[in-house]
Protein backbone atom coordinates (compact mmCIF):
# COMPACT_ATOMS: atom_id res chain seq x y z
CA UNK A 1 0.00 0.00 0.00
CA UNK A 2 1.15 3.46 -0.84
CA UNK A 3 0.11 5.75 1.95
CA UNK A 4 0.96 9.38 1.89
CA UNK A 5 1.75 11.40 4.97
CA UNK A 6 0.88 14.99 4.31
CA UNK A 7 -0.42 16.36 7.55
CA UNK A 8 -3.82 15.83 9.02
CA UNK A 9 -7.15 17.28 8.10
CA UNK A 10 -7.57 15.85 4.61
CA UNK A 11 -8.20 12.38 3.39
CA UNK A 12 -5.63 10.52 1.40
CA UNK A 13 -6.61 9.63 -2.10
CA UNK A 14 -4.66 8.12 -4.96
CA UNK A 15 -5.99 7.54 -8.47
CA UNK A 16 -3.63 4.74 -9.46
CA UNK A 17 -0.92 3.05 -7.47
CA UNK A 18 1.05 2.30 -10.60
CA UNK A 19 0.92 2.79 -14.35
CA UNK A 20 -0.71 -0.61 -14.86
CA UNK A 21 -3.92 0.77 -13.41
CA UNK A 22 -4.42 3.19 -16.29
CA UNK A 23 -7.34 2.17 -18.51
CA UNK A 24 -6.72 1.25 -22.13
CA UNK A 25 -8.68 4.23 -23.38
CA UNK A 26 -5.87 6.66 -22.58
CA UNK A 27 -4.13 5.51 -25.76
CA UNK A 28 -6.57 7.63 -27.77
CA UNK A 29 -5.04 10.87 -26.41
CA UNK A 30 -8.47 12.10 -25.43
CA UNK A 31 -9.98 13.09 -22.12
CA UNK A 32 -11.33 10.01 -20.37
CA UNK A 33 -13.52 9.72 -17.30
CA UNK A 34 -12.68 6.58 -15.31
CA UNK A 35 -15.66 6.20 -12.98
CA UNK A 36 -14.27 3.11 -11.33
CA UNK A 37 -11.20 5.01 -10.12
CA UNK A 38 -13.11 8.26 -9.59
CA UNK A 39 -10.62 9.93 -11.87
CA UNK A 40 -10.50 12.13 -14.95
CA UNK A 41 -7.51 11.40 -17.18
CA UNK A 42 -6.20 14.26 -19.28
CA UNK A 43 -3.91 13.95 -22.29
CA UNK A 44 -1.04 16.40 -21.72
CA UNK A 45 1.76 16.40 -24.26
CA UNK A 46 1.52 12.65 -24.79
CA UNK A 47 1.24 11.81 -21.09
CA UNK A 48 -1.91 10.31 -19.58
CA UNK A 49 -2.36 12.49 -16.50
CA UNK A 50 -4.93 11.39 -13.92
CA UNK A 51 -6.71 13.83 -11.66
CA UNK A 52 -8.74 12.38 -8.82
CA UNK A 53 -12.29 13.72 -8.67
CA UNK A 54 -11.51 15.17 -5.22
CA UNK A 55 -9.08 17.60 -6.88
CA UNK A 56 -11.77 18.83 -9.27
CA UNK A 57 -14.00 21.78 -8.54
CA UNK A 58 -16.17 22.02 -11.62
CA UNK A 59 -16.17 22.04 -15.39
CA UNK A 60 -17.43 24.61 -17.88
CA UNK A 61 -18.05 24.46 -21.60
CA UNK A 62 -18.27 27.16 -24.22
CA UNK A 63 -18.58 27.36 -27.99
CA UNK A 64 -16.49 29.66 -30.14
CA UNK A 65 -16.84 29.34 -33.88
CA UNK A 66 -16.02 25.82 -34.97
CA UNK A 67 -14.52 24.93 -31.58
CA UNK A 68 -15.95 23.82 -28.29
CA UNK A 69 -13.85 24.68 -25.24
CA UNK A 70 -13.84 22.64 -22.08
CA UNK A 71 -12.36 24.14 -18.96
CA UNK A 72 -11.71 22.00 -15.92
CA UNK A 73 -11.28 23.90 -12.66
CA UNK A 74 -9.44 22.38 -9.72
CA UNK A 75 -9.50 22.89 -6.00
CA UNK A 76 -6.71 25.25 -5.02
CA UNK A 77 -5.86 27.49 -2.11
CA UNK A 78 -6.94 31.09 -2.39
CA UNK A 79 -10.45 30.25 -3.48
CA UNK A 80 -13.32 31.00 -1.18
CA UNK A 81 -15.26 28.07 -2.56
CA UNK A 82 -12.46 25.57 -1.94
CA UNK A 83 -13.17 23.14 0.84
CA UNK A 84 -10.23 23.27 3.18
CA UNK A 85 -10.43 19.69 4.29
CA UNK A 86 -10.08 18.30 0.78
CA UNK A 87 -6.68 19.65 -0.13
CA UNK A 88 -3.29 19.67 1.58
CA UNK A 89 -2.97 23.37 2.21
CA UNK A 90 -0.41 22.48 4.83
CA UNK A 91 2.33 22.45 2.21
CA UNK A 92 3.10 26.12 1.61
CA UNK A 93 5.51 25.45 -1.23
CA UNK A 94 3.20 23.41 -3.41
CA UNK A 95 2.22 24.68 -6.83
CA UNK A 96 -1.34 23.77 -7.76
CA UNK A 97 -2.86 23.29 -11.16
CA UNK A 98 -5.82 25.62 -11.05
CA UNK A 99 -7.40 24.98 -14.44
CA UNK A 100 -6.84 23.21 -17.71
CA UNK A 101 -8.60 24.11 -20.97
CA UNK A 102 -9.05 22.01 -24.07
CA UNK A 103 -10.66 22.59 -27.40
CA UNK A 104 -12.21 20.26 -29.91
CA UNK A 105 -14.30 20.45 -33.06
CA UNK A 106 -16.47 17.67 -31.61
CA UNK A 107 -18.84 19.62 -29.40
CA UNK A 108 -21.04 16.60 -28.69
CA UNK A 109 -18.17 14.69 -27.16
CA UNK A 110 -17.16 17.59 -24.93
CA UNK A 111 -20.78 17.89 -23.91
CA UNK A 112 -20.78 14.22 -22.90
CA UNK A 113 -17.43 14.53 -21.06
CA UNK A 114 -18.69 17.58 -19.20
CA UNK A 115 -21.79 15.70 -18.06
CA UNK A 116 -19.79 12.65 -17.01
CA UNK A 117 -17.48 14.76 -14.86
CA UNK A 118 -20.36 16.66 -13.27
CA UNK A 119 -22.20 13.39 -12.55
CA UNK A 120 -19.13 11.78 -11.01
CA UNK A 121 -18.53 14.83 -8.84
CA UNK A 122 -22.16 14.76 -7.68
CA UNK A 123 -22.01 11.06 -6.95
CA UNK A 124 -18.87 11.38 -4.85
CA UNK A 125 -20.19 14.41 -2.98
CA UNK A 126 -23.39 12.56 -2.20
CA UNK A 127 -21.50 9.57 -0.87
CA UNK A 128 -19.36 11.84 1.30
CA UNK A 129 -22.46 13.51 2.64
CA UNK A 130 -24.02 10.15 3.49
CA UNK A 131 -20.86 9.07 5.26
CA UNK A 132 -20.88 12.24 7.33
CA UNK A 133 -24.51 11.73 8.28
CA UNK A 134 -23.80 8.14 9.31
CA UNK A 135 -20.95 9.33 11.49
CA UNK A 136 -23.12 11.89 13.30
Amino acid sequence: GELEERGKGWKRFVSYKGEAGLPREVEGLRIFVDRKSQTVILPINGFAVPFHINTLKNVSKSDEGEFTYLRINFQTPGQLAGKKEDTPFEDPDATFIRSVSYRSTDGHRFDAISKQITELKKEVNKREQEKKEMAD
Binding site: L29, Y69, I97, S101, S104
Partner: peptide, 21 residues
Protein backbone atom coordinates in the same frame (compact mmCIF):
# COMPACT_ATOMS: atom_id res chain seq x y z
CA UNK B 1 -5.39 23.80 -42.29
CA UNK B 2 -8.62 22.68 -40.76
CA UNK B 3 -8.02 19.03 -40.25
CA UNK B 4 -10.44 17.21 -38.02
CA UNK B 5 -8.08 16.42 -35.18
CA UNK B 6 -8.89 13.23 -33.35
CA UNK B 7 -7.15 14.41 -30.20
CA UNK B 8 -8.26 16.90 -27.60
CA UNK B 9 -6.10 19.95 -27.87
CA UNK B 10 -4.69 21.55 -24.75
CA UNK B 11 -4.96 25.33 -25.06
CA UNK B 12 -4.38 26.74 -21.60
CA UNK B 13 -3.22 25.82 -18.12
CA UNK B 14 -3.39 27.94 -14.99
CA UNK B 15 -1.27 27.43 -11.91
CA UNK B 16 -1.60 28.64 -8.35
CA UNK B 17 1.87 29.58 -7.19
CA UNK B 18 2.38 30.60 -3.55
CA UNK B 19 2.93 34.34 -3.74
CA UNK B 20 5.37 35.08 -1.00
CA UNK B 21 7.67 32.20 -1.72
Amino acid sequence: KKKARAVDELVEMRFYVPGTH
